[in-house]
Amino acid sequence: MREIIFDTETTGVDPDNGDRMVEIGCIEMIDRVMTGATYHCYYNPERPMDPGAERVHGLGDAFLRDKPRFAEKTEELLEFLGDAALVAHNAKFDFGFLNMELDRCGLAPVDYARMVDTVAIARRKHPGAKASLDALCTRYGIDRSHRVKHGALLDAELLAQLYIELTGGRQIGLGLGSQSGDAGQAVQTPTSLLPTGPARAPRHHAPNDEELARHAQLVADIPGALWSSGRARR
Rank of each mutant, 00 (worst) to 15 (best):
F95Y: 11
A152D: 08
G36Y: 06
G82M: 10
L194F: 08
L77G: 12
G197L: 03
R69P: 01
H205P: 01
D209E: 15
H204C: 13
L81P: 05
G12C: 15
P198G: 10
A53Y: 03
R124W: 05
C105K: 03
F63W: 10
A120R: 11
L153W: 02
D134C: 11
M49L: 11
Y163L: 08
D83M: 15
S132Y: 13
L102K: 00
A199F: 14
H126R: 04
A135D: 13
I24T: 04
T10L: 05
L212K: 15
A37L: 11
Q217S: 09
C105M: 06
N17V: 04
D155R: 00
F6A: 00
Q171D: 15
Q179L: 14
N90H: 10
A156Q: 01
N90K: 09
R200P: 01
T118R: 00
I4W: 00
I30P: 06
E28D: 10
V116E: 10
A156P: 01
E46T: 06
D19A: 09
E165K: 06
P109R: 03
A53H: 00
L59K: 01
A220R: 12
L136K: 01
G12E: 04
D14N: 10
K125F: 08
R144S: 11
H126K: 03
P68H: 11
F70M: 01
D111W: 14
L158F: 03
G25F: 11
A85M: 11
E75L: 08
Y112A: 13
M49T: 08
I27G: 00
A232Y: 02
G224P: 00
Y42F: 15
R233K: 15
A62F: 15
T35A: 04
